[in-house]
Design a protein around this nucleic acid. Structure first.
Lengths: 189, 189
DNA sequence: TTAAAACGTTGACCTATATCAATGTTTTTT
DNA sequence: AAAAAACATTGATATAGGTCAACGTTTTAA
């Protein structure tokens, strides 16, 4: 059952096959169409998603109505509107499929139950947090000290497939620049 | 011993007094002068610091020699050059005391030993990661979609004491703007 | 306690990036 | 398959914030 996630768990932990099966039994399949919203900004985030196929993004809308993308996730990544998942306040962000996607979903209660039950599952969650932290920190530095061109170069270095898979408009909302600027910046690469 | 950290641990966890004492026995006191560097950018981060008194910052230096401040920590906060602490690569950042400070220090090996030994200590570490994540995520959104004025207003709302305690120059390097701009922005508040 | 260095503020000017609008292209819907 | 909507690109123009320099003040070091 769920070979992709099974694989992921066996690679990232020392959980036994039986334990993995037990973990997997808490997940259900969910499909999402391109542009479908999975978590609305007024809702509370109560599920963790594992992407089997497709891609999603997390974004918010600022006071001028501009979309700001915080994170894009592709295959083999765990993802949710984490701040709200943690503190159970309304998200203020959207989780949206940007491609037709197949996801595995676990609810929050089960997720934390597994975290408590299996030290190794807790470790996986911790690794997700650590990875996210490193990633975010890199982005903060890049906003503080880099030009548009440098930020695009860094993105290509870190995630070579990103600009090939994500539209110009969405990539711009991730990089913190206007679509026009991204379009022009690509010419300078 | 170490009443400040004792307090912190008893508030943030359900560790017993005996357990807390055992945890505390792994920490040693370290004093730091204003401007003293505790972790150099070429070193590997091998200690976690708890700030009893004073303040520190984490910063890096970009290709043009400009200082970029990623995080400021004050009393009752755990802090280290986390990416390097996690993956044991050279930090590329500095941890610097910005005031005369009194710290409690634990080395990495002992830290992870405690994480493994006490579920509740692991939970504290996880909470530090979660808190940092939420914090970073807020900053990313603020760089993407906010003007200088809005970023300063947000900082005042989130950490009212920040601009009173941190110099104009360092605050600017945290907010991702030049000291001149911060100085001028304050007039518009 | 005095000299030197670092810092904050402000003015004049500059530049990277935003905004707006036009045009052609791709995608979506019917 | 046609019409409508969304998107990418590019030119012209605007602007927020950067840079540089000067000057006074505060902090640090001798």
């Amino acid at each position: 059952m769920f070979p992709t996630l099974h694989n992921y768990l066996s690679q990232k932990s020392s959980l036994s096959d039986t334990e993995i099966s037990h973990v997997l039994s808490h997940f259900v399949v969910q499909k999402a169409k391109r542009k479908e919203i999975l978590i609305d900004c007024n809702a509370v985030s109560n599920h963790f998603y594992f992407i089997v196929e497709g891609a999603v993004r997390i974004y918010s809308i600022n006071s001028e109505g501009l979309e700001l993308s915080r994170f894009f996730a592709f295959e083999n990544i765990f993802c949710t509107a984490l701040p709200s998942f943690i503190d159970q306040q309304p998200t203020n962000e959207y989780l949206q499929a940007i491609e037709h996607s197949r996801l595995l979903v676990i609810n929050r209660k089960d997720f934390y139950k597994l975290v408590d039950e299996y030290h190794e599952f807790e470790r996986i969650y911790r690794k997700i947090l650590e990875f996210s932290f490193i990633n975010n920190q890199q982005r903060i530095y890049s906003y503080q000290g880099y030009t548009a061109l440098e930020r695009v170069r860094l993105l290509i270095k870190m995630q070579p497939q990103f600009l090939l898979r994500v539209s110009n408009k969405l990539a711009a909302s991730y990089l913190g620049m206007s679509p026009s600027t991204l379009s022009r910046t690509k010419l300078k690469l």
